[in-house]
Nucleic acid binder design. Structure first.
Lengths: 337, 337
DNA sequence: GCCCATCATGCAAACGATTGCTGCAACTGT
DNA sequence: ACAGTTGCAGCAATCGTTTGCATGATGGGC
């Protein structure tokens, strides 16, 4: 059927062990035989059987990634980065979608654990304890989730929020609203904390709202609340919500950014082309994917569980577009009719 | 280290063969022993070693999917469907991104072919011949690409375009523009052909433009061209372009849909929330992913290469929102100042 | 009470690679 | 010329399953 190492050995007039070594530990065989083997191998189109190999080595050459919800464009960047970096080291990547359900996530991880050399798990909805248990099963690195014992790469949302607040402060805003996302999410906690801390430092007042569903409609709901709170700027948990806010503001006759500034978070593809283009914070998703794999590979290489669980932080960047400006008159909806 | 079938056998006081059979061919062992085995198995937390299994069976329990560009939200739907359906049958899925490069795509497929039981390839940019060669390596089904010898699931873009034209005709439009996508793409050929055929049948005039890059800026460029052609409706190759068109129209003071109707294609998440919400054609991406896996699995089961290469067509649906209406005055830009 | 189906179970041979150990040759230094 | 070293190649065990074949037990029909 398929061409095996034995065929190559026969063709090159050597034993199978020699073939094996010629291909994976080049300096253990004489140059001359090695060339002969290699010639035979690719003349026959030999590709080692990965199942046989991993049976004995215990390594599969496969990495796994599980995300909470692929529907969210945010994750596709990570996925891209993971795959690109993995490919660099000739790893394949198994993919699974947790569908925002902790139970599904856990079962997915358990299944995968058997088939992969390591796993990257994105912003899981599971508990810390579940995560710790799972981490026993296979080398694992987290993305945008922090559990002390597990290595992770985190995107510095707090830092992003600091930039947002500094930007707003520089513009002269003195009272802003924060439209929060799901309380459970690590991201929301980070963003909220970052915003609050920076606001205090800058002596800016914050009206907090939420939690809202982190989607378009959440932003609509939040917009009304924020308007009533007489703020000059609205910071949304993410771009999706910011779009909802923008939409609601327009339909209520509030001009952006003249009457009120709006800022999002994530820098989705559409953020550059919304009307008006949205000021937001760019997350280095692809870089995070790469970094996660890099970290994972490093751990695999040293293979000692001895290394401490490092958490790597990636910088985020504020992208100023056209939804922020110095505040005009205090927001008063009735004034615009 | 890890718990093997031998451990289970020992604990249940049977031979390894019995354990193997109890777990995979239940009716070959007595009910009573079977229960005993199963009890022992999950008490020990036994998970069969997939490498060992596939070494002997030749099956890996893994399916592969390669997409042209994960950045395009269109593919994530397919990916989701693929993964969900695969999971139903306890298959895992290997994922790879071709980065819109035929060479990368090919190398990816070749690598994967060794490790998977079957492959679904989405809208590949490779040539028919390359695809045929690759199809020799492993069972394969195409999505949104037609090659006679290879089974495929196609989304009926032509049918969608027919619905668009019928809708526009019913509204009273008599002259429309088509903003084309990349000429090479199967999708563009289908959409263009569907639109042209339906237009002829309805006695509607069509001004064709393009090819444009299938993105926001392509739509901007196209908008200007279409306006100059004095049409009452603009049909874009996809939603991304339609957004660009919408944006350009607004900034030129052309009202949508009063002055000109706009329709997109794909029904992205954002299409429902654009301003105004976009009339577009929904592609059953997730269903397509499921269907592709279903087809693949069916082929694997019958395992005979005898079956003909069926091509399955999935219906698309026009979603009428707020960018289409009966035509007002013929488009004349200067009239709006 | 005997023989023949029938059913449940065990034995052992694969599957295709990797790798520790062994053996042989050639070479070095004295 | 001989012992010791080194370098290269082969033998065979091993990884954890599945599965064809053989065997033992059970039961039913006569």
């Amino acid at each position: 059927m398929s061409v095996t190492i034995r065929d190559v050995a026969h063709k090159a007039n050597v034993s199978v062990s020699t073939v094996s070594r010629a291909l994976s530990a080049p300096n253990l065989v004489r140059q001359q035989t090695r060339d002969r083997v290699i010639a035979a191998a690719d003349e026959l189109g030999y590709r080692p059987n990965t199942a046989a190999r991993s049976l004995i080595t215990g390594k599969t050459g496969i990495l796994g990634i599980v995300v909470t919800d692929l529907g969210n464009p945010f994750y596709t960047g990570i996925l891209k980065g993971v795959q690109a970096r993995a490919r660099q080291d000739a790893y394949s990547v198994l993919f699974a979608d947790g569908e925002e359900d902790p139970a599904t996530e856990e079962s997915l991880v358990r299944t995968m654990a058997k088939q992969v050399d390591g796993l990257v798990v994105c912003a899981p909805t599971m508990s810390d304890q579940q995560l710790r248990d799972l981490a026993e099963l296979t080398p694992m690195v987290l993305v945008n989730r922090h559990v002390p014992e597990i290595p992770a790469v985190l995107m510095d949302s707090a830092g992003g929020m600091r930039q947002v607040v500094d930007h707003l402060a520089a513009l002269g805003h003195e009272r802003i609203a924060y439209l929060g996302g799901p309380r459970g999410a690590w991201s929301d906690q980070e963003r909220r904390a970052g915003l609050l801390a920076a606001a205090e430092r800058q002596h800016i007042g914050v009206a907090e709202f939420g939690p809202f569903p982190p989607r378009f409609d959440g932003g609509i709901q939040g917009a009304d609340l924020a308007l009533a709170a007489e703020v000059t700027a609205i910071v949304a948990y993410n771009d999706l919500m910011a779009f909802g806010t923008l939409s609601r503001l327009r339909s209520r006759g509030v001009r952006v950014p003249t009457d009120v500034s709006v800022v999002g978070f994530d820098d989705l593809v559409f953020s550059a082309t919304s009307a008006p283009p949205l000021t937001t914070v760019a997350m280095p998703t692809e870089a995070a994917g790469r970094a996660a794999v890099h970290l994972l590979l490093a751990r695999l290489a040293e293979s000692g569980a001895g290394a401490p669980a490092t958490a790597q932080r990636l910088d985020t960047y504020l992208i100023v577009r056209f939804t922020t400006s110095p505040p005009g008159a205090p927001v008063s909806v009735s004034a615009h009719h």
